[in-house]
Amino acid sequence: MGQGMIQGGWGYVIAVYGISWGVMLGYAVMLLAQARESALARALPEASAASPASSHKGRAP
């Protein structure tokens, strides 16, 4: 029986911080690589993304 307070437990803290940082950094690196690739490959015109004429329904006049 303890004293009603948690002693130690740094292992859990390290695991939580480690997993969280690992996943977020990994996800960020993956997205950066994909975004860079799409930028290099297509020279994507920025304006087209927001342009009203770019409806994916393709019903432009």
Partner: peptide, 21 residues
């Protein structure tokens, strides 16, 4: 955008006015 530009899609939309393209 790449998907729309691909010619072999079954449901290719009409050519888009990619202003600035």
């Amino acid at each position: 955008l790449a998907e729309e530009a691909a010619p072999d899609l079954p449901d290719a939309p009409a050519p888009l006015d990619l202003s600035g393209a």
